[in-house]
Amino acid sequence: MEEKVIMAGFGGQGIMAIGKLLAYAGMLEDKQVSWLPSYGPEMRGGTANCAVIVSDEAVGSPLISKDGTAAIVMNLPSLSKFENELVPGGKLIINKSLIDVEPKRKDIEVYYVSANELAAELGNPKVANMIMLGAYVELTKIVEIDSVLHAFLKVFGENKTHLVPLNKDALLKGAEAVKVRA
């Protein structure tokens, strides 16, 4: 099994963070992982994206080019930039709160998640990224939610323990959002 997911959005939406959480969670489950950020000058105030690979075998190319199995897109520029990087049948998870157009491709599975609204329901707009990650994990079952939460403390430190319940709620809310649609 090999998951190659692109995560993309505005700088500040926590794109790099959910990528690291997924990679760390995969590592905690003894899978092979890589996390590759875009590091062009466009990072400053512009779009941010990273490529995460979680695999049972050693990761080959850490770059995703036309062979992504999934993409999480959190803003409009990311949709047009990355929908073409998916394989046919790939999963495209769209942040409906900020993207009001449909993808052009008809040969992929599309899921809409109103991440910002759902985050607001939890009382913290910052967890929109975790809602998107929750939806992705539900759709792929690539890692356990518990592994993501374990990774959360590894990536952000034990002093963020008080934020685990909120982030768990966000992951579950995201999972629920795509369960209903399926």
Binding site: M27, V33, S34, W35, P62
Partner: peptide
């Protein structure tokens, strides 16, 4: 190369 510098792995 820059990719090795920037990427994360276990």
């Amino acid at each position: 190369d820059g990719m090795i510098g920037q990427m994360m792995e276990a």
